[in-house]
Every structure is written in structure tokens, then in C-alpha cells.
């Protein structure tokens, strides 16, 4: 069924305690696409990802992954379907070595990358295996956070602000890695504040405001819509 999207979110509402964060988000990601969520701080981008992963458990509406409904599913089963998550704060464990961090997420499907392939993609991680995870630089921690998902065989990757707080050289390196992943056939949903970076990679962009998706812009029409986008993002 090439026409069914890989990830299909419809009328998603999510709550933190009493506060209502998402008000009916709808979007879809097709197999092999790289899609970004753009928007200002607090628009609900991160919450959307956390709702997909089940971390935000108070949610209504529908999140379908390859036709399987994720709303109501036990949290630990979501990753088992083949979704890899790279959180905004990277989530490198300080009590684990780099190698232990790398091999922590269980393999959920065949077809994941080998450690050798991962090292080829992120040469910075080579020879650092026994280092304490949080001793790596910010950029290396970001690479590690992405790398550990690639082993698992997950084919949809949720990347939350992979370039946040990183130096331009490192951002470039991350960008190359994401391109390489795209060529390998990974499907990627990415939160990004830096829309210039997003424009170099993504196929389509969803714009979020106050817990809604307000617009969808294909990457090739980005230039034509740049004024609109500036108003959305306030840049």
C-alpha cells in the first residue's frame, strides 16, 4: 500500500496534567520522507513527538504507524514497532560508557546498521567506547544519540532539534549524516528551529502554532513562501 502514509496523526490532543498543549494536530509522513516541524518555542513540536512515543500519556485522537494505532498502546511497545526517538536533551546516560549507550536500545527489527557502519557515519565515536557517555562534547553526544537508534532497525526516526546549541561545523556534519540516512531509506520526522538547516534536508515542512498545524510547505516552494514563513516563525 504505497499510498498509506507511514505515520498518520489526526486530531491529536495532548495534556500535561491540567494544561492542554496540543489542540487537534494533524500531519502525515510518507515512507522515505524527511519532514520537519517548524514553529516557535511552545508551539507544541516537542510535545507532538513525545505524544507519538507515548511519553505524554494523556492524549486523544489518533496516531497511526503503518496502520497500527498508537494511542492507548503501552509505552514500551511503541519503539518495538520500529520507531526510534532522539530526544531534545539527547538523553546520554552518565552512568553508562559510550559503548553501553550505543548498544542500550534493544534491536527491534532486522536490518539495523552495524556498529562498523555507524562508526563510518560518525567517525568521532571511534575509539571512544569506554569513555563515560556524558564526557563527550555536545556535538558528539548528539551523534551518539542518533547513532544508538540506527542499530535497532527502527525505520522511522524522530529527531528533536538535532542542531540545537551546536557549532556550525558540527551542524554540517550532522546534516551530512542525516542525508546519508535518507539515502539509506530511513524516514525522518524532525523538529527544527533552524529552518535554513531544515531547508537543506527536508522534503516538506509543517508549521505549528499554539498546538495546531497551521500550514504545510513543500521544500521546493519554500522560497515562494518565505515571507509567510517569516511571519510564522517571527524571524
Amino acid at each position: 500500500m504505497p499510498d498509506t502514509p507511514m505515520l498518520e496523526i489526526a486530531d491529536l490532543h495532548a495534556f500535561y496534567g491540567e494544561s492542554h498543549i496540543l489542540h487537534g494536530v494533524g500531519l502525515e509522513v510518507r515512507q522515505g520522507e524527511v519532514v520537519t516541524l517548524l514553529g516557535r518555542n511552545g508551539a507544541g513540536k516537542t510535545t507532538t513527538m513525545r505524544a507519538v512515543m507515548g511519553i505524554v500519556s494523556k492524549r486523544t485522537g489518533s496516531i497511526r504507524f503503518r496502520g497500527t494505532e498508537l494511542v492507548g498502546m503501552a509505552q514500551h511497545r511503541v519503539a518495538r514497532l520500529g520507531i526510534g526517538y532522539v530526544p531534545e536533551e539527547r538523553g546520554i546516560f552518565s552512568s553508562l560508557s559510550v559503548d553501553e549507550n550505543l548498544t542500550l536500545p534493544p534491536v527491534v527489527k532486522p536490518g539495523g546498521m552495524t556498529v562498523a557502519q555507524i562508526h563510518e557515519l560518525f567517525p568521532n565515536l571511534v575509539g571512544r567506547g569506554s569513555t563515560q557517555g556524558t564526557r563527550l562534547s555536545g556535538g558528539e553526544q548528539q551523534m551518539l544519540a542518533v547513532a544508538r537508534i540506527l542499530r535497532t532497525g527502527a525505520d522511522l526516526i524522530l529527531l528533536d532539534e538535532p542542531t540545537e546549541g551546536l557549532a556550525p561545523v558540527i551542524i554540517e556534519q550532522i546534516g551530512r549524516a542525516i542525508h546519508a540516512l535518507k539515502r539509506r531509506g530511513f524516514t525522518i520526522l524532525m523538529v527544527e528551529q533552524n529552518f535554513r538547516f531544515a531547508a537543506t534536508i527536508a522534503d516538506r515542512h509543517y508549521v505549528m502554532e499554539e498546538g495546531h498545524v497551521v500550514d504545510m510547505i513543500p521544500n521546493d516552494q519554500l522560497a515562494a513562501n518565505s515571507e509567510k514563513l517569516h511571519t510564522y516563525l517571527g524571524v
Binding site: 507515548g54 511519553i55 511503541v78 519503539a79 530526544p87 534493544p106
Partner: peptide
Amino acid sequence: ENPTLVQAFGIN
């Protein structure tokens, strides 16, 4: 350290 993230990796 971070039970939420470990859970998000598919561990019960």
C-alpha cells in the same frame, strides 16, 4: 537515571 527514555527505547 532516566526511566522515561529507557521506556521510549522499548524496554518495559
